[in-house]
Nucleic acid binder design. Structure first.
Length: 453
DNA sequence: GTTGAGCGTT
């Protein structure tokens, strides 16, 4: 007995939807497409093999596996990234389009265009930069009062290769040479070391940097290994690929017969209070001891002012002064200082306090010799929790009557999501509420005359 | 009504 509907979801973890079958028990691809725009097939997880199994498609009909759809959940299949042409993308809508679009532009960032002629307007930029690829956004920064150009602007491409092409050269725009660069505000986030660096706890003294490097190189290119001296039972390993680093977090690995624990080099949450505390005397203390600060384990405990004791709140990898770990190796003052510093709830790795932060502890420039705070100054800066990449903003304002002028969301007339063609018009509601995609610059509501009008 | 290194009123 055939069921008249089958359960289909966009993803295994997503909520499923009932999709109607035909009389003959097949599912029309067109029916599937109606609910899952852009989908090209179906699959389901085979419980025996654990693998996904594809559904036969012939002449626009999807056929039940072994003649029985059964009660299982099916997952819509979408074209792989790259198999789609830009033109085709314009026809897609909804979640499928958003997903592909997001994938395509995942590596793109806003680019600043410097040296624009005063007279250049957003439409000029759009015309010029479209030669490199589809544009998602164009802005010319203006004085809000006079609306005169400030001589620079921002653009964003849909495709990373367009961005690369564009940045590979200078640009002659309306009689002036202009430069396109990654904005300073994005640079830190881009090579945010925190995301690429892991904390390796429970290290033994036998583990050399080379040991760690060769071990972790199995997972991905290791670009740095740092072992604080004197020995403190932890280390940092930095990968070139943040994905690798993140994937390893939470795992235990055996190195030289010992179990090490890998965790994020940055706290997941950032607390202004903690940051302020960090800038205080605590850091001085820890710094003077060569202490590092780090709080991957400190969530939910050990925050606030300096704690006189570290009992019961010793981070993993740092032996406490109770129990058997005391005998494992010697506690030294630096370790205690490090633990104290960590437990004081300071966020982020790096030298204690941000040496480049105003108000932070100043690195001692004379007198007290200090151990090398961090491998590089860049790390010190990028280790700040405040500089975690920002999640994309929603398109909220675009869908409202604040529709931005001066903000391009699509090049040409085949507006990808439907906002490109008619600027200033209202966008369908389902687009205005789409979360987590894009978020490139809703321009000031006051500015009149959009780039595309 | 001017200007020419920079860094984005959300």
């Amino acid at each position: 007995m055939m069921s008249k509907y089958i359960q289909v979801a966009e993803d295994e973890n997503e909520e499923s939807m009932e999709v109607p079958l035909e009389e003959d028990g097949t599912l029309l691809l067109s029916t599937l497409n109606a609910q899952f725009p852009g989908s090209c097939g179906l699959k389901y997880r085979n419980p025996e093999s654990g693998a996904m199994r594809g559904i036969r498609l012939s002449d626009g009909r999807l056929y039940p596996p072994d003649n029985e759809w059964s009660n299982r959940m099916y997952v819509a299949v979408f074209p792989k990234e790259g198999n789609k042409k830009k033109e085709d993308l314009a026809e897609l809508s909804s979640a499928a389009a958003l997903r592909i679009k997001r994938d395509r532009s995942i590596k793109c960032s806003d680019l600043i265009v410097l040296g624009l002629p005063w007279k250049s307007v957003e439409d000029d930029l759009k015309k010029y930069f479209s030669q490199f690829g589809e544009l998602l956004m164009v802005q010319v920064k203006k004085d809000p009062k006079t609306s005169h150009s400030k001589g620079f602007g921002f653009i964003r491409f849909a495709d990373y290769d367009a961005q690369v092409k564009c940045m590979a050269q200078r640009h002659h725009i309306d009689g002036r040479w202009c430069d396109v660069r990654i904005p300073n505000s994005k640079v830190e986030a881009k090579d945010n070391l925190v995301n690429r660096k892991v904390f390796v706890g429970r290290c033994t003294e036998e583990m050399t940097a080379e040991d760690l490097r060769s071990y972790f190189n199995k997972f991905g290119e290791v670009v740095d290994v740092f072992i604080p001296r004197p020995f403190r039972a932890f280390a940092f390993v930095t990968f070139s690929d943040p994905e690798i680093a993140q994937a390893l977090c939470g795992e235990d690995h055996i190195i030289k017969g010992a179990s090490v624990h890998i965790s994020n080099a940055a706290p997941k949450t950032y607390d202004k209070q903690q940051m302020d505390t960090r800038k205080g005397s605590l850091n001085q203390q820890a710094y003077s001891q060569g202490g590092y600060t780090h709080t991957p384990w400190s969530q939910g405990g050990g925050r606030g002012a300096a704690q006189p004791h570290i009992q019961g709140q010793v981070p993993p990898g740092v032996p406490n002064n109770m129990g058997m770990s005391l005998g494992a190796f010697q506690l030294n003052p630096a370790m205690i200082a490090a633990a104290q510093a960590m437990l004081s709830g300071q966020g982020g790795w790096g030298p204690v306090g941000m040496v480049n932060q105003p108000g932070g502890p100043t690195p001692v420039s004379g007198g007290t010799p200090l151990p090398p705070p961090v491998p590089t100054a860049v790390e010190a800066q990028t280790a700040q929790p405040t500089q975690q990449p920002q999640p994309p903003q929603s398109f909220g304002s675009i869908g409202s009557n604040q529709v931005s002028t001066g903000t391009v969301v699509s090049a040409g007339n085949n507006s990808f999501l439907g906002w490109g063609g008619n600027q200033g018009q209202e966008v369908p509601p389902h687009q205005s509420t789409s979360p987590g995609v894009g978020g490139w610059g809703a321009a000031p509501p006051k500015q009149g005359g959009g780039a595309w009008s």
